[in-house]
Amino acid sequence: MVNIQHEDTLINNFLLLSRQYCIKNIHIEKDKKSNHMDCEFTLKNKEYIRVEAKTFKDSRNYSQNFIKIFGGILKGRNLPLAYSKNNYPVYYGIMIDLEDFEKFKRYKQTINNIDWLNFSRNYDAKYIFVVSKNKIFIYDWDEIEIQ
């Protein structure tokens, strides 16, 4: 329950900032048992993006939430689109809070980088949206490398 409240805050911050980043036609899924991903939108009028939002606020669930990102994307690939994609290519992404970015990167270290990149290529995972209260950082999936 704690993470759902934090995810709602994360998505609301994203919604408030979205106009600054050429993010349009946003669909926010309020019903967690719905037939859509957490957030769907068009980016720069050329891509339809479907996003799994996760937070890492509850220390009992850090690793589970990291793993759920991948399951959420895989499940989302079989869910209907929230609206017409206008012949745009469909890509998938992750939305996380800036406060959780370091935790996310630590968990990312547990995955072989080749597997990380193969997941991106095989399942069209393209973006990681890191959201703060006043900015959205948009990373390509391949950009998140841990030394």
Results as ranks from 00 to 15, higher is better:
I11K: 06
N12A: 14
N13C: 09
L15R: 05
L15F: 15
L15P: 00
L15Y: 14
L16F: 13
Y21T: 02
C22E: 13
I23F: 04
K24D: 15
N25F: 15
I26F: 11
I26L: 12
H27M: 08
H27N: 13
H27D: 11
I28C: 11
E29G: 08
K30I: 06
K32T: 14
K33F: 12
S34Q: 15
S34M: 09
N35E: 15
N35H: 15
D38W: 11
C39V: 15
C39N: 13
E40F: 07
E40W: 10
F41T: 04
L43S: 10
N45C: 05
N45G: 11
K46A: 14
I49L: 11
R50F: 09
E52A: 07
K54H: 02
K54N: 03
K57L: 03
R60L: 09
Y62R: 11
S63K: 14
S63L: 07
S63V: 01
Q64K: 14
N65V: 02
N65T: 01
F66A: 08
F66M: 05
K68R: 13
I69R: 02
F70R: 04
I73H: 04
L74G: 03
L74Y: 13
K75F: 10
G76R: 10
R77Y: 10
N78A: 14
L79T: 01
L79G: 07
L81W: 08
L81V: 08
A82N: 07
Y83D: 11
Y83K: 03
K85E: 12
N86R: 10
N86P: 02
N86H: 12
N87A: 10
Y88S: 11
P89R: 13
P89Y: 08
V90C: 06
Y91E: 05
Y92P: 00
G93T: 01
G93S: 00
I94M: 03
I96H: 05
E99R: 09
E99L: 06
D100K: 06
F101P: 01
F101L: 06
E102S: 10
E102Q: 07
K103D: 05
K105S: 07
R106Y: 01
Y107S: 03
Y107E: 04
Q109R: 13
Q109Y: 04
T110H: 07
T110M: 09
I111V: 12
N113C: 08
I114N: 07
L117C: 04
N118Q: 08
F119I: 01
Y123F: 15
A125L: 04
K126M: 06
I128N: 02
F129G: 03
V130A: 01
V130P: 02
F137T: 02
I138P: 03
I138K: 06
W141T: 05
W141C: 06
